[in-house]
Amino acid sequence: MFKPVAKKLLLLAVITVLGVNAFILGKVWLNRSLVVAELTLSERELDMPYHWGMAKEDSSLRLNLAWTTPWLTSSEDDWQYLSRQQQRILRLQQPQFASFRFGSCTDGYQRQQRSGWVLLEFNGQSYQDYLKQAEQHYAVIQQRLAAEAAAELNAGMAQDRLQAAAKRRQEQQQRAEEQWRVAREEATRLFVIDAAADRNLLQQTLAKHSGPTAGQLLLVPADIQLSYTWCQDDKTAKQPEVMVNRLAVESLYVAKPYAQHLPRDANRQHKIRFQAQLRYGRYAEPWLSALTLSGTEP
């Protein structure tokens, strides 16, 4: 028999667990009671975990949102890094930057993190600009390789050196072609294009974006940090910059009925193609409402 105190503690624990679950489920229901935006994304914007399918006893699956920010530079030297779309630095207008009320750089930029909002753009002008930069980079590589080949022939290089140079150019050509293909077919089309602590400031930006190149736009919460380059003492004029550390929600649970559409590919030999309906609710929190398999690519 339980002692009275033990019974009370057990009852309190049960009530606490039920209360927490009720609160969480209630918030989920309220969030999903109003759909404010719906995006049709694919494997380009939703990353499957590398280990998916390797542990047969684990049938759970979460997809991570793959996003980037507009490029601050398109120089050839930076392309190897930027072509992987790992950009997180975002330049802001002064009102948006000031809304975060960052402290002095003497406090360290690492500790200058604030909660705020970002403006997401899907398949809009930012992605078109990225494609244009990728195409220009590809064209520059072609022109440079052709010029190098002509110069080597005119210089009367030995046959073995010509062959070695030709092999090197072929490898560079293949890398350039692969980067251009990835930009067209695999790169994420989801961009963070603005940020502010005050949601109303982004509403103004949202209102200015319209027309056929605007894409789909929505506001979501995120964690914003002061950019390390902003605090560099190089005495040059700078435009305010921040680093978008993470979106408030960027890992999505895939329900078992949807996960079953995705074949387990332990060897990762094929690119799994799929489409997913992503809905954002009342509190700007996303969930998957549908997922269909498009096929696989060797």
Score class of each variant (00 low, 15 high):
Val14Leu: 08
Ile15Thr: 04
Val17Leu: 14
Ala22Tyr: 12
Phe23Gly: 04
Ile24Lys: 08
Lys27Gly: 03
Asn31Arg: 13
Arg32Tyr: 01
Arg32Lys: 14
Ser33Asp: 09
Ala37Gln: 14
Glu38Ser: 13
Glu38Met: 09
Glu38His: 09
Leu41Phe: 02
Leu41Lys: 05
Glu45Pro: 05
His51Tyr: 11
Met54His: 06
Ser59Phe: 10
Ser60Met: 09
Asn64Lys: 15
Leu65Asn: 09
Thr69Arg: 07
Asp77Gly: 04
Asp78Arg: 15
Asp78Ala: 15
Trp79Arg: 15
Leu82Phe: 06
Ile89Ala: 14
Arg91Trp: 08
Ser104Asp: 13
Cys105Arg: 04
Cys105Ile: 04
Thr106Gly: 13
Tyr109Ala: 01
Tyr109Ser: 07
Arg111Met: 02
Gln112Ile: 00
Gly116Glu: 03
Val118Ser: 04
Leu119Tyr: 05
Leu119His: 04
Leu120Pro: 02
Gly124Ala: 11
Gly124Asp: 09
Ser126Leu: 07
Leu131Met: 11
Ala134Pro: 01
Ala139Tyr: 15
Ile141Val: 10
Gln142Ile: 07
Gln143Asp: 12
Leu145Thr: 15
Ala146Asn: 15
Glu148Pro: 06
Ala151Gln: 12
Leu153Glu: 10
Asn154Tyr: 08
Gln159Asn: 06
Arg161Cys: 05
Ala165Val: 00
Arg175Val: 07
Glu178Ala: 14
Glu185Gly: 08
Glu185Leu: 14
Arg189Lys: 15
Val192Gly: 03
Ile193Leu: 10
Ala195Asn: 13
Ala197Leu: 07
Arg199Pro: 02
Arg199Lys: 15
Asn200Thr: 09
Leu202Cys: 00
Leu202Asn: 01
Gln203Ile: 12
Leu206Arg: 07
Gly211Lys: 06
Pro212Phe: 03
Gly215Leu: 02
Gly215His: 04
Leu218Ala: 09
Leu218Arg: 05
Leu219Tyr: 04
Val220Gly: 01
Ala222Glu: 07
Ser227Gln: 07
Thr229Tyr: 02
Thr229Val: 05
Cys231Lys: 02
Gln232Ala: 03
Asp233Ala: 14
Glu241His: 00
Arg246Gln: 12
Leu247Arg: 12
Tyr253Glu: 01
Val254Ser: 06
Lys256Ile: 00
Lys256Asn: 07
Gln260Leu: 13
Leu262Ala: 05
Asn267Gln: 14
Arg268Cys: 00
Arg268Ala: 04
Arg273Gln: 11
Gln277Pro: 02
Leu278Lys: 11
Gly281His: 01
Arg282Thr: 04
Arg282Tyr: 11
Pro286Cys: 06
Thr292Asp: 02
Thr296Tyr: 09
Thr296Asp: 03
